[in-house]
Computed example of a mutant assay.
Amino acid sequence: MFAAGSGQDTVSRFENDTDSLQLNSDLWNNTDLTIADVLATFGSVAGRDTILDFGDDVLVIQRLREIDLLIDDILIV
């Protein structure tokens, strides 16, 4: 699970529709956001990678160029 205080982490072998990411809502101060909101607010693509940037905590998913593919692979806890 990726949560506030996790710092920076990298996922190097993410497989769409096989793997999942657990994000703790404390990353965005427990505000009621949908997965689409999280991706639109905190997500971006840089080169070949998707980046979820929550300020002090950053998750890089290598070799994933289409951020929308994550919509059914994220669990909010």
Score class of each variant (00 low, 15 high):
1 M>L: 09
2 F>T: 05
2 F>V: 12
3 A>Q: 14
4 A>Q: 14
5 G>S: 10
5 G>M: 06
5 G>Y: 09
6 S>V: 13
6 S>M: 14
7 G>Y: 07
8 Q>L: 13
9 D>F: 10
9 D>S: 15
11 V>S: 10
12 S>W: 00
12 S>R: 11
14 F>Y: 04
14 F>M: 05
15 E>K: 11
15 E>N: 07
15 E>P: 00
16 N>T: 07
17 D>F: 08
18 T>E: 09
18 T>Q: 08
18 T>G: 00
18 T>Y: 12
19 D>N: 10
19 D>W: 00
20 S>Q: 04
21 L>G: 01
21 L>K: 03
22 Q>T: 13
22 Q>S: 08
22 Q>E: 07
23 L>F: 11
24 N>T: 09
24 N>I: 06
24 N>H: 11
25 S>H: 03
26 D>H: 01
26 D>V: 01
27 L>P: 01
27 L>R: 03
27 L>V: 01
27 L>N: 01
27 L>D: 02
29 N>S: 13
30 N>E: 04
30 N>T: 04
30 N>D: 10
30 N>M: 05
31 T>M: 08
31 T>C: 01
31 T>R: 13
32 D>R: 03
32 D>C: 07
33 L>N: 05
33 L>V: 04
33 L>Q: 09
34 T>N: 04
34 T>S: 15
34 T>R: 02
35 I>F: 10
35 I>C: 07
35 I>G: 03
35 I>N: 00
36 A>E: 14
36 A>F: 06
37 D>Y: 03
37 D>E: 07
37 D>S: 02
37 D>H: 03
38 V>W: 08
40 A>W: 06
40 A>T: 12
41 T>A: 14
42 F>S: 01
42 F>C: 02
43 G>N: 04
43 G>F: 02
43 G>R: 02
47 G>R: 09
47 G>A: 08
47 G>H: 10
48 R>M: 11
48 R>F: 10
49 D>K: 06
49 D>S: 14
49 D>W: 06
50 T>L: 02
50 T>M: 02
50 T>K: 02
52 L>D: 05
52 L>H: 08
53 D>M: 12
53 D>F: 13
54 F>C: 06
54 F>R: 03
54 F>G: 07
54 F>A: 12
55 G>A: 11
55 G>T: 08
55 G>I: 12
56 D>T: 11
57 D>F: 08
57 D>Q: 05
58 V>K: 15
58 V>R: 14
59 L>M: 14
59 L>C: 11
59 L>H: 10
60 V>A: 12
61 I>R: 07
62 Q>V: 03
62 Q>L: 08
63 R>D: 15
63 R>I: 11
64 L>Q: 13
65 R>Q: 15
65 R>H: 09
66 E>F: 09
66 E>G: 01
67 I>N: 08
67 I>V: 15
68 D>E: 12
68 D>R: 10
69 L>P: 00
70 L>E: 02
71 I>S: 12
71 I>P: 00
72 D>M: 03
73 D>K: 01
74 I>W: 03
74 I>V: 15
74 I>F: 09
74 I>H: 00
75 L>F: 13
75 L>W: 12
76 I>L: 12
77 V>Q: 13
77 V>M: 13
